[in-house]
Design a protein around this nucleic acid. Structure first.
Length: 547
RNA sequence: UGCCAGGUAGUCAAGCGGUAAGACACUAGACUUUGACUCUAGGAUGCACUGGUUCGAAUCCAGUCCUGGCAGCCA
């Protein structure tokens, strides 16, 4: 599918392949295991995997676990599951920590070449010495330690002789560089903590800027794709690659992040929502996480197509949520059966239909995809339609559904006409008295009159009571702050409706998708919600026409 | 105000010197056993602005403006 799209990275790869700079493509997806993946991450995943696949290459999954204070094995597992769900199979699954020994050796090499030194400056002092955008930095007083001394001290750092923060290993580059990342950046820091992969083996950990280019080199990554904020780090990336005498030199290319309008993606806020029980968990269908979107009814294919269609550029882009929705519809359009569901039941009595008679009708599952076959539904004197499909007052000409005096088609069944509204004592509508026209039976090719629209129904005799959990995704209409985001998130966005689904759904299987009449998607999830039915209102049609 | 990167319709985005693709959204209409789907029609005399080079510029050059990123022992 990516061969239909064009982007600057693809062009770079193509040119390099053609000119012989590289003879294959190997990319990597390097998440830090400190959060659940969300739709924003999908751009990195899809880009890396699809680009490699397009050129006949492969992609490594590498957990970027060089900072044990933030990471946890829980996320490692979650990320792997998400990738699996998306249908991507990495060439290998590795950890940044798998390379700690080799990384350490490269640090020794830099020391021996006089390109790195052990620094005793405190964190604050390093910051002061670094200078700022208009002030050049000052050299650390420890910058001129001898190679022997540096070697000894660095070994002692590794051996655990020093407490957290007391020493660092720094690259010796240029304290006056206009790029602050090049002002003798820290390469290693001391952290005495248990690492989720390496346990207590190490107490010094390499920084991203040092570890990442080396890992890419070790694995033979040809193109290291990352987001825009690493642009300023590229000179350092290249410095590491060029000075560490690695056999393979990867190339870093940056691309913009992908956001969705009004969708909150910040790790911190998502965590807060979960921690404070404002949502059920990371897989709450209101969440923008991949697991959340899965329960919301999105399919892997929809997400991939969405990402590919939004393209790739050096702009941090924010696309409309409608774009995402479009691709679910597109993906499910020809794959789903389309059962009927009534969210807000309104009883209808077909007064000219015999009591105690039940007739079976054939309903085509998907008129656009006949291979999906048909199912049997029933019709009888008492049925339910949706309150939203009936307008008690006189509708305007745009109204394409039911009202007094109007004739509509009950999907897969007959035309009906409403003759009388029966009210309760409190003035609410109790039921509708209608008549049907036997000549208009579905499938007979009747075309002497046009109905005012088609509405769904369920047969009261055979329908199944169902609870619909209607939710709205967590969205915000403007930039949030940590103070106001909770109120504005409106996490209480579940509405439970007691309605009915047609009898044919009694064999519903977990995680099947159904495309409902109003273009909603319907998912049941065995693990977390048993018989819960989720109706995604966000992909339903506008219901305010003609009102 | 230092360095870096960007500015093409409401939102994404192609184009890379030859006269502005495509998608989403939107509007109008047709069709329809979902107001879905499908189909038809509609949008930039214009590519941040101003000059310049050229037969010809969104594409090259210069200047200006605007936006984003960067001063963790985070990634």
């Amino acid at each position: 599918m990516i061969n239909e799209t064009s982007n600057f990275i693809k062009t770079i790869m193509k040119n390099e392949l053609e000119s012989g700079v590289v003879d294959h493509i190997l990319t990597r997806f390097p998440p830090e295991p400190n959060a659940y993946l969300h739709i924003g991450h999908a751009r990195a995943i899809v880009t890396n995997f699809e680009l490699a696949k397009y050129f006949g290459g492969q992609t490594n999954l590498r957990f970027d676990d060089t900072n044990p204070v933030k990471e946890d094995a829980e996320y490692v597992e979650a990320i792997q599951k998400d990738l699996e769900w998306l249908g991507y199979v990495p060439r290998i699954v590795v950890y940044g920590s798998s390379y700690f020994e080799e990384t350490y050796e490269k640090a020794i090499l830099l020391i021996k070449k006089g390109l790195a030194f052990v620094c005793d400056l405190s964190q604050e002092e390093i910051s002061q010495y670094r200078g700022d955008d208009k002030t050049p930095g000052k050299n650390s007083p420890y910058r001129n330690r001898t190679i022997e001394e540096n070697l000894k001290l660095f070994k002692e750092m590794r051996d655990g002789l020093y407490p957290n923060g007391s020493k660092t290993l720094r690259a010796k580059i240029d304290m006056a560089s206009p790029n602050i990342n090049m002002r003798d950046p820290v390469l290693y820091r001391i952290i005495h903590i248990n690492h989720h992969q390496t346990g207590d083996k190490w107490c010094i950990y390499p920084m991203y800027d040092f570890a990442h280019p080396l890992q890419d080199s070790f694995e033979g990554i040809t193109h290291s794709l990352c987001s825009l904020e690493y642009e300023d780090h590229r000179p350092l990336y290249d410095w590491v690659v060029n000075n560490c005498e690695v056999a393979h030199k990867p190339r870093q290319i940056e691309f913009g992040r992908l956001g969705i309008t009004n969708m909150i993606m910040s790790k911190r806020y998502l965590k807060q929502l979960v921690d404070e029980n404002l949502v059920v968990g990371y897989d709450d269908p209101r969440m923008p996480t991949l697991v959340g979107l899965r329960r919301r009814g999105f399919t892997p294919n929809a997400i991939k197509e969405f990402i590919l269609s939004t393209g790739l550029s050096k702009i941090n882009s924010t696309v409309d949520y409608e774009m995402l929705e479009h691709f679910v519809r597109e993906d499910l359009k020809l794959k789903t059966t389309r059962p009927m569901a009534i969210l807000k039941p309104l009883k209808v009595v077909i007064t000219n239909y015999p009591e105690n008679q039940v007739e079976e009708l054939e309903a085509i599952n998907n008129a656009e995809c006949l291979e999906l076959g048909s199912r049997k539904i029933t019709f009888s004197r008492n049925i339910y339609i949706d309150q939203d499909d009936f307008l008690p007052e006189k509708p305007n000409k745009h109204w394409k559904r039911f009202s007094v005096g109007l004739e509509v088609r009950l999907m897969h069944a007959y035309f009906i006409k409403c003759n009388e509204i029966i009210y309760n004592e409190d003035g609410s509508i109790k039921e509708l008295h209608c008549t049907y026209d036997p000549a208009t039976k579905s499938g007979t090719g009747f075309n002497e009159r046009k109905p005012n629209g088609t509405i769904q129904y369920v047969d009261a005799a055979t329908c199944i009571p169902a609870q619909f959990n209607i939710f709205e995704p967590l969205m915000l209409d403007a930039k949030v702050s940590s103070e106001n985001f909770k109120e504005r998130m409106n996490p209480n966005s579940w509405t439970k409706l007691n309605g009915f689904v047609e009898g044919s759904l009694k064999d519903t299987k977990p995680l099947d998708h159904y495309q409902f009449v109003r273009c909603g998607y319907y998912v049941t999830d065995k693990e977390s919600s048993k018989d819960l039915l989720i109706f995604n209102q966000t992909v339903s049609l506008k219901s305010s026409f003609g009102k």
